[in-house]
Design a protein around this nucleic acid. Structure first.
Lengths: 228, 228, 228, 228
DNA sequence: CATGAATGAGATTTCATTCAT
DNA sequence: GATGAATGAAATCTCATTCAT
């Protein structure tokens, strides 16, 4: 569709390369020289596109996050029920991270704890999704799906914290990624902790007593136990 | 009791100061010169006690972690039941981190994602506790307290991830610490996801009595017990 | 003829300067800072051209030795007789050292005893000539010019040792250089020790008997004894 | 005999150790700390005995050279003839160096080219022997043993240079020492270059016999001895 | 005396960044 | 617009040397 100007291509190449190298070695240990060499341009050229090394670093998530965030914003309104939304967001995170290993390594290992990154536009966007997660939990509480005494911040912390923890283990210990396969177990665990129980769930003991003279075998006792 | 030699005192002072500065600025941005000045010694003196800047960094958790780890190892055998143990471990983590803000900042923001740190003795110890957590979850599964289909690794990831996430938010965003007050909510959330339900818990008892003489308003007894 | 790029010129300037300062103060006592200042560049610029201080040191002989070694290799095949060759090599050494006082000071005072230098390509080249010297002595032995019981290694040690000793005295004691004027005396001394004696040398016994009755053809008795 | 005070023993131990380490690594690369540790004393103790690192270095040859120099001075007067003396001196050098490998390594690799060493008392002594060598050559010239046109300095340079060269090769290349076995070949080579020829060598004897009855005093006997 | 402990003074080396071409 | 070349500014680390105990 849209032609990519050679200039844009070059810029993307630099960003791509920088992501890789920053992810591997961290900001401090990566050098512009190394990046430029790997990207096939000169040091000076990097500075044509980015004013400082840090600007280069912070541009990376901007580029990567844009589309997924937009997608998520589009999808969520179509989903009914807090649970579905919550599950979708978790799915979104996991998919994004698993599909972009370099990006997730960069974010998890180096960006997430970078104080300057907090002042960034990229961080704004990311916070946006995190906020949607919070909102969605709150909605669940408000509409009675989730328990009234649920602490939305704690729940969000659990969700994000788990994702982050799994991600970091993946990158640091070389554990198999399989991020996405954790979506359901995680969400189920969370939901089981905050969902308001309905009759049909958990233990439902229904005893129909028809009167004294009714023989035992006619008494209707139903025990339904569902998976939590 | 035991006299602290001036040498030890000096070493501790350096470690203390280093922890503070490393925690604030990270490993790369902190300089030995800054640390030594803040500790009231010369650069060279720092190198009397630590062979490299990195060794200084890695010595910090060693010093801090030793006692809490030992304590935890002593306490756990006295606790009965996987739930108690699990709660104790979470409590231990949260307390350690909350009582040592500099330490927790250092670990969460800088050490946790440092690849060299993984090869460290300190990391060994820390992994030790994490392993105890896993063991304790497994025990719960084995003795029937926790559901058979529980994924211990996921549960652990949720616990540790949540703690880490809360810790990082605290340090990075200056959110109020209050780490410890999250212990119970967190543990309860987790338990509600893995605990095998007993009658007295999570019970919905619906008794439909069909007897004539019974007044209508009494015919339906619903007992709902939610959340322990 | 060939344009010298400013880059090459700069590099040469650094090498030149380094040679001077290394020769004067030795490797350890010379500082990059001093060299760069004297060469009119910054410290960092020196490191643009040479990766380490030691690499700078070892580059020097490489640059200097190249031409003379090539020349010697070209000349030798044109010389007839081991004596001429031997004399030419000595002449070559002495000329090289005398014409490049900085270089000879560096080699004699600092490089010759540097263990790392032995692993160097420069050292390879230098060893090349030393080997040619050995070969040439051996050839003399094989073709009967030099005594059969000559120890070529000793002879070479004498030649090189003498050159080195003279060179060191020159640089260390400020004795007048005049290296080249020692070529002939040295070579003659050496040759007198290894040359196979001819008629006019060593023992010639000529007896002229003037008696009448002696047949003319008997009047001349010549005893020639060769080889001492 | 003479009791060695513990103080002297300690000093000797330091000197011994320093010799070893200086010989191995050179002055610049050896550290006081390393020496003191190897000698079993503290850094500060080294400074009790020697004011500076350099003073320690320069004390070494003083200690080692003293006895051999005295011995040589005692022996020489007993020897008759320049050749014997010359041979004795060479023998002395070679023996000293071969018997004290650490010392010879130190001198040959590190001390000989140290400009400050030239101002040292130790160097004075060493120069003393070198001067004796020169004197002895000169004596040989004066008494007619050696050729009138001998350049004593060159001869001495040849002798010392050869010894040094062999010594350096030994230490640097790990060539087998066998220094002493080179004494005779070396001296013979030298002598063959400077010795005035005697009858049995290099002799031209021309005898003109004019007849039986010719009185002996009329017989023409010419003895020509040519420079070799 | 011997030494543990401390440090002043540098030295090498690295890099982000600039600028003339 | 792209870059080769240069460098200012530091930072880590080392060690000879001192001094109080």
């Amino acid at each position: 569709m849209s032609k990519i100007s050679p200039k844009t291509a070059r810029k993307n190449k630099i960003i791509e390369t920088a992501m890789k190298i920053f992810a591997e070695k961290g900001f401090a240990d990566a050098t512009i020289s190394e990046i430029s060499k790997a990207a096939g341009v000169s040091d000076a050229t990097v500075y044509e596109y980015f004013n400082t090394k840090e600007e280069l670093l912070f541009t990376i998530p901007e580029e990567i996050t844009e589309e997924p965030v937009r997608d998520m914003e589009k999808i969520l309104p179509f989903l009914r029920g807090s649970e579905s939304k919550l599950r979708a967001i978790v799915q979104g995170y996991m998919t994004l991270y698993e599909n972009n290993p370099l990006y997730s390594a960069l974010v998890m290992l180096h960006l997430k704890t970078n104080r300057n990154f907090l002042k960034t536009k990229s961080y704004e966007k990311i916070r946006g999704i995190a906020h949607m997660l919070l909102t969605c939990i709150q909605e669940g509480i408000d509409d009675g799906s989730f328990k009234k005494d649920t602490d939305p911040h704690l729940v969000r912390a659990m969700i994000l914290g788990t994702i982050e923890h799994l991600c970091i283990r993946w990158h640091l210990l070389g554990a198999p990624s399989n991020l996405v396969e954790h979506v359901d177990p995680l969400v189920d665990m969370i939901l089981s902790g905050i969902r308001v129980k309905t009759h049909t769930r958990n233990l439902s003991l229904n005893i129909h007593l028809a009167g004294d003279s009714i023989p035992a075998e006619n008494q209707d006792i139903t025990v339904e136990e569902q998976k939590s």
